[in-house]
Design a protein around this nucleic acid. Structure first.
Lengths: 211, 211
DNA sequence: CTATATTTAGAACAAATGTACTAATTTGTG
DNA sequence: CACAAATTAGTACATTTGTTCTAAATATAG
């Protein structure tokens, strides 16, 4: 493991445990077993480290998107993608736990994240159109409901982590599957009977693939 | 306005604007036009101020609950209550924007908030039971969906503020009504036809009362 | 091997911060 | 008015932090 990788790994652990606002270059250097002078040679300050970790996360998620992407959209593939994305997000959870502070301090990340969500919005609208075309989803409940649903998906998709960190009371191993269910449960009431059937089949197949 | 009130007011403005992690007793004292020595006489540190502001918020919301509470549950009253609570939450938005940092730093607030959400959970389950008894809401979609819905309501109910702060792109005046719609849209797909009708009437009445 | 570039450790310094303390001022009360 | 309690301003100091700098150590290329 290179020095830079070591720094990022230790910083990630500290950020997740203590929060970006209290972790300093000296803390990270101590955890990584090096002088803080050396650490500042590689990364001038903690913001640069946060930026690198954010890039790592986006890289991981993009990798998974290209790995899972198949010609012809499949509900099962979509489920796997969401599961992988949520795992990655949880490994870098400090980014969303300290969301406001990071967005304020590091404008580059703020701009990137806003762009990311705009792109996600486009993909989601395509997904909705496909599901309706295939007769799997009901038409829009009222004018503007799709927009509301999109916002719900963004909020739950980003901030389930804060809920998981402070309010979840179940088994640790069930945590991520539970919040994946919470997220998909946003769509379930909007499925047609046919969509409901297909969703059940996909859920069973994913359960089989786990065991 | 007493000195303590002045301190709390200035601290609230600074916290909302800059975040709790960068605002110090000296900043607050300067904004309030007093020495930081004096400020520390009233509140030993910023955490004590945050705690007081949290208590203020809970106080405001409880006031509104008792003010709106009427014998026999009314959907209109519930809508007003949600609107008022969201307004109060938005005035104290730093509490939820810096959620993780505050929960970590101030265990008393963490415990209070966890207790608050447990209580909210009980009220919500009663609400669901009432709505189903009155034939306004469909039965549970699948075993465990009520639990998922409750988690969705908690996440959106707390973290719509972060979304509103960084991602909302509409008119500022429409911000709170928009997110109130997003929140209620979690329940709309679960209403029966009768519930749908009553919800429409309530929405019209609230629109009339606004003008 | 040797020279050059890279990496590392540690010192140094200014600025900011939390906290405690003192003395002056104001307020309230008999 | 007198006097005690409270409020307020300002000072002082140890600690932490970001940042820069120097010199030593290590690695790399010719």
């Amino acid at each position: 493991m290179s020095t830079k990788e070591k720094i990022l790994a230790e910083a990630l652990a500290l950020f997740n445990e203590r929060g970006t606002d209290v972790v300093t270059v000296r803390h990270i250097a101590q955890a990584a077993g090096m002088s803080h002078g050396n650490l500042c040679y590689h990364y001038p300050n903690t913001d640069a480290i946060v930026q690198s970790l954010y890039n790592q996360l986006v890289g991981h998620i993009n990798e998974q998107i290209t790995a899972v992407a198949t010609p012809g959209f499949e509900l099962i593939a979509a489920g796997q993608l969401v599961a992988h994305a949520m795992e990655a997000l949880y490994r870098y959870r400090f980014l969303l736990l300290d969301f406001a502070g990071i967005m304020r301090r590091i404008p580059a990340i703020r701009d990137q994240h806003q762009a990311l969500l705009k792109q996600r919005g486009l993909v989601f609208r395509q997904l909705l159109a496909y599901l309706r075309e295939a007769g799997l989803m009901k038409p829009e409940l009222y004018a503007g409901h799709d927009e509301h649903l999109l916002t719900q998906l963004f909020i739950v998709g980003d901030f389930w982590i804060a809920s998981a960190e402070w309010l979840y009371e179940g088994e640790a191993a069930d945590k991520l599957p539970y919040y994946q269910q919470v997220l998909t449960a946003l769509l379930v009431p909007l499925l047609t009977e046919q969509g409901w059937k297909q969703w059940h089949e996909a859920a069973e197949q994913s359960r089989e693939s786990q065991t």
